[in-house]
């Protein structure tokens, strides 16, 4: 394996993400551990989006839908379990659950089903229409969540205890960080596998030149749909973790602002870079935290920074750090 600058930068990013909570634990600072957990979770959502946006070239402006679906599945299952109310009571009974190992696959599958439908319809179009359709579908789900009263509607849904993981105390912030971090690493590994596989190569071809892919007998539609669904599932897992972090879900998780933010994580770090979303989410949370201390209007400055990155540094942070002298 040859060591490129990107490998070095990637290792540094991951090392930093691990070091911060460990040091915080030693200093008895749970707040910082929670911040790092948030970074890991947002990064996971970004890694998911990066598959569709970066590697698949599908500009989805609706990934908040999957993030929120992951969150709502978690919230609904947990609150039913906490209240001993079955989810469905008829010929057979379906109960809620507080086991993360059960909640995650359910969240992933539900979001995947939504993604199949949304993707299949949206992929009939391309370009700006694809952006708008994904946005429209996510807004549809958002407004549905706002106006559907059973699970809190506009106010959102709280569940009072964090869900459980076998043999680990999830109330310990550091333990929960390790769970989120492990899932993030698994997702990054899966992304790397996907992009290096035959499927990933064909996908790259479809992104760059769909006609050519079609002419050698590969239909871009199925490649795009597959990556869209996988991408949605990862983002949904992040949504589930985020719900558990806050023990609260609200329509804000489904709002288009969330879609924009997940997109920002990817671009700030570096589009189509394996760890771009990790660097991006880290910077975003850091900026929120630091700028937030010195001004209430930190988003104003965040906007300016983002504008500068988009206009002048299209490769994002990892792009800047790995650029060799002389490259443009």
């Amino acid at each position: 394996m040859n060591i490129t600058r990107e490998t070095v930068v990637n290792s540094a990013v991951l090392a930093l993400l691990v070091l911060v909570p460990v040091v915080a634990q030693l200093r008895g600072d749970p707040f910082t551990i929670t911040l790092a957990t948030k970074v890991a979770i947002f990064a996971l959502a970004g890694v998911g989006l990066n598959l569709a946006l970066g590697f698949g070239g599908l500009i989805s402006f609706g990934h908040a839908a999957f993030f929120g679906i992951g969150g709502y599945v978690t919230g609904i299952l947990a609150s039913h379990a906490a209240n001993y109310e079955p989810l469905f009571d008829g010929a057979f009974t379906v109960n809620g659950t507080q086991q993360m190992l059960l909640i995650w696959p359910i969240a992933i599958v539900v979001a995947g089903l939504f993604a199949v439908v949304i993707g299949a319809l949206s992929l009939r179009t391309s370009g700006v229409f694809f952006i708008m359709l994904t946005l429209a579908f996510s807004q549809m789900i958002y407004y549905f969540a706002v106006s559907w009263p059973s699970y809190g509607g506009e106010d959102g849904l709280s569940f009072y205890t964090r869900n459980q993981f076998p043999e680990l105390n999830m109330f310990d912030p550091l333990n929960y960080f390790w769970v989120c971090f492990t899932l993030l690493i698994l997702a990054v590994g899966l992304s790397a596998m996907i992009t290096r596989s035959r499927f990933g190569l064909a996908l790259g071809g479809a992104r760059q030149n769909p006609q050519r892919m079609a002419s050698i007998g590969i239909r871009p539609f199925w490649l795009s749909l597959t990556i869209f669904v996988i991408s949605a599932m990862m983002t949904a897992l992040a949504g589930s973790l985020y719900a558990d972090l806050n023990r609260f879900v609200s329509p804000a998780m489904l709002n288009w602002h969330m879609s924009g933010e997940i997109m920002v994580f990817v671009i700030l770090g570096g589009n189509r870079r394996l760890l771009g979303p990790v660097a991006g989410a880290g910077l975003y949370i850091l900026a929120e935290h630091l700028l937030g201390q010195f001004s209430d209007y930190w988003q104003f400055f965040l906007g300016l920074v983002l504008l500068a990155v988009v206009l002048f540094a299209p490769g994002g942070v990892i792009g800047i750090l790995t650029r060799r002298r002389g490259d443009v």
């Binding site: 500009i59 700006v128 920002v264 671009i267 988003q299 104003f300 906007g303 983002l306 988009v310």
Partner: peptide, 29 residues
């Protein structure tokens, strides 16, 4: 800002104008 975006792809346009929203909203506040 906008003038620099005509030649860019839609993704850059979405992001840059999303950044403008942040600037305008917080600026108004």
């Amino acid at each position: 800002v906008i003038r620099r975006l005509y030649a860019r792809d839609h993704l850059d346009q979405v992001l840059a104008t999303f950044a403008l929203i942040l600037v305008f909203s917080e600026g108004c506040r």
